[in-house]
Amino acid sequence: MSISYSSVTKKIWMSLMGFFLMTFLIVHLSINLLLVISPTTDLFNEASHFMGTNPFIQAFQWILFAGFIVHIIIGVVLQIENWMARPKGYRVKAGSEDSFFSKYMIHTGVIIFIFLIIHFVNFFLVAKGVIGEIPETMVDGKPMDDMGSVVIALFQLPYYMVGYLVALLILGFHLDHGFQSAFQSLGLNHPTYTPFIKGFGHFFAVIIAAAFMIIPLFIYFSK
């Protein structure tokens, strides 16, 4: 399928899906941060309940899965083509580049993918009732799944918390290159705005990774 698409088309899809997944990260992060800003898990449980039951979100999650799949498949295809383009490498490796993490997109990508599967098993499938049991709680008199307690229980395991921190750090590396690269692939380059986009890309990567990392640290040391 993908072979028939040109290299530029594949990169355009890669960047569109990248942007899409970045917006997902922002939404996901906003909900997670409810665990930090609120003294109880009620707000988080309400948000989880909304995400788990709202019909629009339920339909949209399939588009999100598709986004992940397209981004992953095209990414792997691009990488295989890239390896094939240089069957014999150099003895003295080239070191010139402007975007350091661009060289490790497949490596960081694979780690994020593994993290995603673990994350999916530990949270998504639990929330859907496929795996394990979720305790019930009452929020404003309504019975709800207590996803907050599931999160807190996992983040109190030191190895889980450290693994999560490492995965999110790697996600930050992936975003550091991905943000500005997505603009370039879409042809959005401008003498005035591109330096800002590059700078903002670093900022975005740091903020997203750091904000996600605060949550397990907060839970581990405060609950």
């Binding site: 290299s7 594949k10 990169k11 890239n82 080239a94 580049e97 975007s99």
Partner: peptide, 11 residues
Amino acid sequence: LGFGNCTNTYA
């Protein structure tokens, strides 16, 4: 021709 894809590394 078998050239690779652009990763926007800018080397």
